[in-house]
Design a protein around this nucleic acid. Structure first.
Lengths: 227, 227
DNA sequence: GGATTTTATGAGATATATGTCAATTAATCC
DNA sequence: GGATTAATTGACATATATCTCATAAAATCC
């Protein structure tokens, strides 16, 4: 019942089954973050959610199903918040830097979600694609604007993403401080062909302290149908 | 009994227990590569090694112990071969590019070892440090030579490593071709402050086709003591 | 407040993993 | 080739995981 149980909060006004499902998903997030995806067991999840073992199977077929559900919800959330944090930024250099920095701030502000996202991104390819969907557009915009001198393809994007995830990993482990976002953004911009001076300036410029940590809470619509 | 059972080959002239241990280690490599470290079981390893379950426990306390043994042997091997492949290269730009490219070629030439190394590097920090030990020196050399304009610290090194590992990951999955090494080396050099033109030139220049895939085979010394 | 539907439960059947050990087989020594 | 030592075996005790299902409890309806 900490303030990190975001699914539960989100389901507060929904039917009972939705609330139980949400508790299971919050529990799964913390167990995945603590034990890793492979080592996590359904038993651990139900224990953390304080429900009986059998209850799990009312809502999910198996561990994979809840993992997928959780991962996609988190990814969706992250994409939404990044989008919101970047309206009005039109310069490609700034957009790319901003996205990396916001992503790191967001993912490390709720470490359990960050951990879960980190692990999920390695497992679900299409999920990674959805999180980085905006990235390709921004990179191509930069090439069009003549500020990036590099070929944009899957290889570049996965290299770019690996840099961000590595920074997140260090951040979550306490090996890097709050400047991790700026540092990695600077390196990314240099890699893309931005001059070292500009890269440093953009990556370290102040960022408006927008904080939209809470997910959008859906309205209660009708009685929840089966499931 | 494929030509990938390198530990077994290495132990060919040693005592029986050394050979059995080597079989187990080869089996562990292939099981870790196939199933991942977490999902691998001792039973799977003994099955792959074609020995009884109990035999495993004669040589290793548990899965962690064999994993550590295997990981450190592989890392040691890789470091040795990289060292050997780089004698005579003194320019820092070339050394850094060469190391990345050789590492990728090596790790993807024996994919099971590459997979095992990839997973191990994420788990064992000190192992990563050992694989990367030469890297720090080369980076600092580049700064001293005035060709890299970046601060060399743990953050930079982990970012650099993440780029290499990401390329390895794609290479092992067939998402990238033989030019993966050159491509990522080019991006790394740009990140370090090398001009785009020079980065491309160095990263794509021909590499002497040195192939030292086989590990050094230790001589039979004396009767193997206990263990 | 009694009937009906929804939700939750936990014992149990099934499966698979770990680690031990007395017994067996293979290798070595003289 | 018989004795001694080294190496291997696989059944077994223990533990933990998965998934099912008859039953119980809770919520909802009228």
């Amino acid at each position: 019942m900490t303030n990190l149980d975001l699914f539960t909060r989100e389901a507060r006004n929904l039917g009972k089954s939705a609330r139980t499902k949400a508790r299971l998903m919050d529990a799964a997030v913390s167990v995945f973050a603590r034990d890793g995806f492979e080592a996590a067991s359904v038993n651990e999840i139900t224990r953390a959610a304080e429900v009986a073992n059998g209850t799990f199977y009312v809502y999910f077929k198996d561990k994979d199903e809840i993992a997928t559900a959780v991962a996609y919800r988190i990814a969706n959330d992250v994409v939404q918040q990044l989008d919101a944090a970047m309206v009005g930024v039109s310069d490609a250099v700034e957009r790319v830097s901003c996205a990396t920095r916001r992503f790191l701030d967001l993912a490390s502000s709720t470490p359990q979600w960050g951990q879960a996202l980190f692990r999920a991104v390695w497992i679900y390819n299409d999920l990674r694609d959805s999180v980085v969907s905006y990235l390709r557009a921004d990179l191509e915009r930069g090439v069009a604007q003549g500020v990036f001198s590099v070929e944009i393809d899957d290889f570049l994007i996965s290299t770019f993403s690996a840099m961000t995830l590595s920074a997140l990993f260090r951040r979550l482990n306490g090996d890097a401080g709050p400047d991790a976002g700026s540092r990695v953004a600077e390196l990314q911009l240099r890699m893309l062909g931005v001059s070292p001076d500009l890269a440093k300036q953009v990556a370290f410029q102040d960022l408006e302290p927008i904080t939209l940590i809470m997910p959008v809470i859906p309205r209660e619509t009708e009685r929840s149908k089966k499931n």
